[in-house]
C-alpha cells in the first residue's frame, strides 16, 4: 500500500453552505518528500488537512492516501498516518504516557523505544499531567503522539507553534530523520525559515484556490524584502521606478518604502547617492513572498 503516492488530491472542493472553502484543488505529494502547505489565515489549509483525515468529507473531487480513498478506507489509512492539529487539544487529566497508551490501544503501532528517544530529545517528562503543562510542553506531547508510531505519512498543522528556537531545531531534526527513513511529511507553516529548512516543495493556497507549487530546494527565490528609508527631505521616487527589481514604492513625507526582489546592490547604490539617515527592513511573511512571487 505504501508504494502508492502518499497524497493525491484531484479536483477537491469543499463548501460550507453556499460559501466555498476550497475550490478545485489538485496536488500530489511524492514518497519521501517534505511538502509545505502554505497560505494566509482562512485560505483553506485546515479544511484541506481535515479532509485528508476524513474529518470533513469532500463536496467534490477525490482524495487518495497511499492509493486508498480517504472516505471509504479511512480506518486503514490512519494506521499509516500521524497527525498534529494546529490548535491541538489533549486530555488534561491524563499524563503524557497515559495518552500514548490510550492512543496505542486505539490502534497505533507505537515504537516505545522511539517514544523514549523523542521525550528525551524534546526534554519533556511523560509522567506529568497534561493539564499542568505549558503551551510549549503540550505541543511537545502533541509532536510525540504524531511521531510515536513512525508513520509513513505525517500531517502537521503549524507544528512549531509555541516551541522555543532550540526545540524548533530538534523538531527539524525529527522531520529530517523521518524523511531519511523514507517517510513523507505534509506540513502547514507560516514560518519562512522553517519552510526553507525542511521543505522540498511547497504549495501556496489563497482564498481556497491553489496559486502554485514550487520546488523550494532548487529554484524558488525567497529574496523579497521590503525596506523603509528615511531621508532629510522627500526624494524623487522616479529615481527608483526604473530599477527592475523594485516595486510597490510609496512615499510619506521624507520616508520612502519599497519592495526589492532579488539582488539589492543597485538599490543600495542609488539609496547611498541620496544620503539616507535611516534604513529598516520590515518582516516579510511567507504569504507576502508568495503573493509577490505570483503577483496575486
Amino acid at each position: 500500500m505504501t508504494t502508492d503516492l502518499p497524497i493525491k488530491i484531484k479536483g477537491f472542493s469543499k463548501t460550507y453552505g453556499a460559501s466555498p472553502a476550497v475550490e478545485d484543488l489538485t496536488l500530489m505529494v511524492e514518497k519521501g518528500e517534505v511538502f509545505g502547505f502554505l497560505g494566509p489565515n482562512g485560505a483553506g489549509k485546515s479544511t484541506t488537512i481535515k479532509s485528508l483525515l476524513n474529518f470533513l468529507a469532500p463536496s467534490d473531487g477525490k482524495i487518495s492516501i497511499f492509493g486508498l480513498d480517504s472516505v471509504k478506507n479511512s480506518v486503514e489509512i490512519k494506521k499509516h498516518i500521524g497527525y498534529l492539529a494546529g490548535d491541538i487539544s489533549l486530555y488534561d487529566s491524563m499524563s503524557g504516557i497515559q495518552l500514548i497508551r490510550y492512543l496505542t490501544r486505539l490502534g497505533r503501532n507505537t515504537n516505545w523505544a522511539y517514544v523514549e528517544t523523542l521525550a528525551k530529545n524534546l526534554q519533556i517528562s511523560l509522567e506529568a499531567k497534561i493539564g499542568t503543562l505549558s503551551k510549549g510542553n503540550k505541543q511537545k506531547i502533541g509532536l510525540i503522539q504524531a511521531f510515536m508510531h513512525q508513520p509513513a505519512l505525517l500531517i502537521l498543522d503549524e507544528p512549531t507553534s509555541g516551541l522555543d528556537p532550540l526545540m524548533k531545531q530538534i523538531f527539524y531534526e525529527m522531520v529530517l530523520e523521518m524523511k531519511d527513513m523514507g517517510n513523507t511529511i505534509f506540513v502547514s507553516s507560516h514560518d519562512l525559515n522553517e519552510v526553507q529548512t525542511i521543505c522540498d516543495k511547497a504549495a501556496f493556497i489563497k482564498s481556497g484556490k491553489l496559486i502554485g507549487i514550487e520546488n523550494i530546494k532548487e529554484n524558488f527565490d525567497f529574496s523579497i524584502r521590503r525596506y523603509t528609508v528615511t531621508f532629510d527631505q522627500p526624494v524623487n521616487t522616479k529615481e527608483f521606478t526604473n530599477i527592475s527589481s523594485v516595486s510597490d514604492i510609496t512615499q510619506s513625507e521624507n520616508k520612502l518604502t519599497l519592495t526589492v526582489s532579488g539582488n539589492v546592490s543597485e538599490v543600495l547604490s542609488k539609496l547611498s547617492d541620496l544620503h539616507p539617515v535611516d534604513l529598516s527592513e520590515e518582516d516579510t511573511s511567507l504569504e507576502d513572498i508568495f503573493m509577490k512571487y505570483y503577483e496575486v
Binding site: 483525515l53 476524513n54 474529518f55 479511512s74 480506518v75 486503514e76 490512519k78 494506521k79 498516518i81 500521524g82 497527525y83 492539529a85 490548535d87 491541538i88 487539544s89 489533549l90 486530555y91 495518552l99 492512543l103 486505539l106 490502534g107 497505533r108 503522539q145
Partner: peptide, 14 residues
Amino acid sequence: DSGTIELVLASPIS
C-alpha cells in the same frame, strides 16, 4: 467541544 475528538479520529478506529 474540547477538540480531543480529533485525536481519536486520527487513530485507526471507525
